[in-house]
Amino acid sequence: MRPFEYVSPTTKAQAVSLLGASWGGTEILAGGTDLLALMKDDIVSPKRLVNIKNIRDLRGISSSPQGLRMGALTTLADLADDAGIKKNYPALAEAAIEAASPQIRNMATLAGNLCQRPRCWYFRNGFGLLPKDETGNELVADGDNRYHAILGNEGPAKFVSPSTIVPVLIAYEAKIRLEGPKGKRELPLEKFFVIPKSENEREHDLGPNEIVTEVVVPPVPNAKIAHYEIRQKDVFDWPLAVAAVALKMQGSNVESARIVMGYVAPVPWMSPEAEQALTAQPLDQETAQKAAEAAVKDAKPLSHNEYKVQLARVAVKRAILKAASGGAA
């Protein structure tokens, strides 16, 4: 790690004013599980670290008839253990406990999970977010892209969005709240993720001096919701595909669906095609299969990741069938 100065603001306003107005000079320290690795690998090298863990306003989980509010500093362990979340948002609790390891769940925060940087091995080896070698060759298309995107990969960004809990949060129609020098704003969570087109952009709609303050989820949905991950190792492994679905039912037919895939594109990937395929259909093997096919219809695998099309398809199908049979395991 390069040297840096360390500040621990106690209010959101202090934190915002301690951050720099452009990327590079400052970084926000929350759980640190990703940031310290990035700093050790010299992927980011802030001159100032703004530790936000002493900001009380960023803590806490509360449920009310208006919905669920989770402070930015909520840890994954808090998410997994919270009785209200387990009862009312069980697919979120399940996604949280499926994430990483107990040690990481004790450290990693919700905001950090949303803002973590891609696991792309070119990015992590210092070749950039849109990886090129020093002569300008694009590396992913010609290289080992077995873990890269199969959707949304037409531009130079070929990494996959790394959060495993974001798809299910999007299925729950979560919104993210941010605070910066220009004040507060709120976004549907899916809008927080963007596909960068140049190396000086990041993959989040987040200003360098903005902080994530909280995530809110609407009241307990009248929907069947499930999360499904395909991992090679049993636990503590980055998934190969993630799917989350929320199915609003009318009788035995699907009235509307939200279908979100993770680990397939540079952003969490919502699939209107799959949603359409399920709408007004009963829930069974056949419709789940059709929706799964629709979800990957436009997939454009790279040279080494065609198998991920199959895995994404399976993840979507299994998530739908899991939701149909009652959601979280």
């Binding site: 603001p9 106690t10 202090q14 915002v16 301690l18 452009s22 590079g24 400052t26």
Partner: peptide
Amino acid sequence: KISGISVAVPLVAGPQAVMAAGQQV
């Protein structure tokens, strides 16, 4: 060369502290 800090943080004199949102941090 920390870009932006000059804009965001009007640093004040006094060792080991910066002004942020009207308070010393």
